[in-house]
Computed example of a mutant assay.
Amino acid sequence: MATGRSQTWSSLANRVGPPGERPESARRSWRSTSSSPTRWSAATARGSAPRPRCSCCWPPRSRTSRPCWWPSGATVSCSRPLRAQLPAAGCARARLPDLLSTALSTAGFWLKRSSYEEQPTVRFRHQVLFVALLGPERGGFLAWSTFPAFNRLQGDHLRVPLVSTREEDRNQDGKMDMLHFKLELPLQSTEHVLGVQLILTFSYQLHRMSTFVMQSMAFLQSSFAVPGSQLYVNGELRLQQKQPLSSGGLDVRYNVSVINGTSPFAYDYDLTHIVAAYQERNVTTILMDPHPIWLVGRAAEAPFVINAVIRYPVEVCTYLPGFWEMIKFAWIQYVSILLIFLWVFERIKRFVFQNQVVTTIPVAVMPQGETYKEHLS
Rank of each mutant, 00 (worst) to 15 (best):
L206P: 00
S101P: 00
A132Y: 05
G4F: 07
S203A: 13
S229Y: 03
S55A: 10
I293D: 12
P23G: 09
S257W: 04
A277K: 09
S35E: 13
F341Q: 10
F181D: 04
K349R: 11
S105G: 07
I286V: 14
P290A: 12
R95K: 02
A276Y: 02
F341P: 00
Y372I: 13
L142R: 13
L295T: 11
R80S: 08
S229L: 02
K373F: 05
Q241P: 01
S164I: 06
P37T: 14
L12Q: 13
N255Y: 14
E280Q: 08
Q119W: 02
K349V: 09
R28E: 13
R170H: 14
V252R: 02
R63N: 07
L271I: 08
F109Y: 08
W294C: 02
H375D: 12
S114K: 00
V363W: 06
N171H: 07
V128T: 11
H375W: 06
G20M: 07
Y319G: 05
Q127R: 08
L12A: 12
I361R: 15
V358H: 04
G155Q: 05
Y254V: 09
R311I: 01
Q356Y: 08
M366Q: 11
L237S: 09
P303L: 09
M217I: 09
P313V: 07
R46L: 13
V316F: 03
Q230A: 09
L339A: 10
Y267P: 00
M1A: 06
S257V: 05
N14A: 11
